[in-house]
Design a protein around this nucleic acid. Structure first.
Lengths: 210, 210
DNA sequence: CCCATATATTTCGCGGCGATATATATCACC
DNA sequence: GGTGATATATATCGCCGCGAAATATATGGG
């Protein structure tokens, strides 16, 4: 089981993000964006739970202009809980990439669309690296490490995309066009191997209708 | 909105994984493991929905030894739906890394624990690269691209960890023991005994990545 | 002057995860 | 030759968390 929203909120509080709104930004655009996500629907219930368990405190703060603010702070008990959560064994990283899934089916797209997608994808990682580089302040050593290695890692990832894309684009150019479905003969009896069936590629039509 | 389980299943079917069990393995240990995940609780309902919508067909297959099998196949309508799902704009990749979150709070851990964590973390990515390298068969160009760039990307990621870890470990050694965070103003004094409740799990179960 | 944007919290439905139950066959081990 | 672990296979259920909308208000740009 992964770290749950209560622990993530405790961490955010410890890092100095002390309202629901700020915590959300920390995960959306801030230092945590690289490796975790958390949305309102999890944050506010989690904060309430932390209050109820004495792991955080809350002082309401009427404000000049802005809406009222609830300023949270982690307690000693909260710090203990956070420390304890860091001792367990962690499930390994999972990446959710719709880009990559789409690219897996590049043979169903027009070469143009694939190229555009790759542009956008690589650029996204360069942008992320840039965003991380702009993080201000002097974070604790762990967060600094993550900033440094994360920035470099994102740039490397972008570079890997660029380095391998020509092979993909070449293969799509030389290979059959958008692998269109001619009605295939029901030839298969026993697919003993789970490998992909060959679909007779009848090259049909050009770039599709959007 | 991200790609939903129905689209992911359609993709898996198109890629030649044709039972619920096989689809799950494709996302757990197979070619999709790098960039998506999907579990039974999503797969079987999704397959039923695909059947109901005519996007897939199913033939029940009594087997010699093994339990009965339901062999699914994507239909032409299914391929159209898959293609259409690939045209949208995608939300950018999100990484869920409990390792990195933990490292963000390295100042709350013992240096030993941090080092162990970094070892395990880098090794996890090397293992993943190795797993990807072992993928067999001749996949379509998109999947081949993902295999190649994914393998290299994982190795780069591991290298970034190794390259920056010394700076982190140095900072933890020279810096104060646990916890001194100047960011927060209203800090009630918390002189917790340095590195008191840190227990490194010495016993490493030989279990690899989940 | 109006609309978009930023600050700030709350709530709700729906989708997906992970665990469990159910069944059966093979293989390693003692 | 029994015992348990592992692999094949499907179905289901509770709970967690996401994303969106509702609510409220002040600033700033066009």
């Amino acid at each position: 089981m992964p770290l749950d929203s209560k622990i993530l909120c405790l961490g955010a509080l410890d890092a100095g993000f002390n309202t629901g709104y700020d915590i959300r930004k920390a995960f959306e655009e801030g230092p945590f964006q690289l490796y975790q996500s958390l949305s309102y629907g999890s944050i506010y219930p989690a904060l309430n739970a932390l209050l109820a368990e004495g792991l955080a405190t809350c002082t309401e703060q009427a404000q000049d202009g802005r809406p009222d603010k609830k300023v949270y702070a982690i307690t000693d008990a909260g710090r203990v809980a956070l420390r304890q959560a860091l001792v367990r064994r962690f499930a390994f990283d999972r990446l959710r990439s719709d880009f990559m899934f789409a690219i897996a089916f590049a043979h169903l797209m027009s070469p143009d669309q694939v190229s555009t997608l790759l542009d956008e994808y690589a650029q996204g990682y360069r942008d992320l690296a840039h965003t991380l580089a702009k993080e201000t302040g002097t974070p604790p050593p762990g967060r600094q490490f993550l900033l440094d290695m994360g920035r470099e890692g994102c740039l490397s990832w972008a570079r890997c995309i660029e380095e391998h894309r020509s092979a993909l684009e070449e293969a799509l150019r030389t290979g059959p066009g958008p692998d269109d479905n001619a009605i295939k003969a029901p030839a298969e009896e026993e697919p003993a191997t789970p490998s992909r069936l060959t679909e007779a590629a009848a090259a049909t039509t050009a770039a599709g209708s959007p």
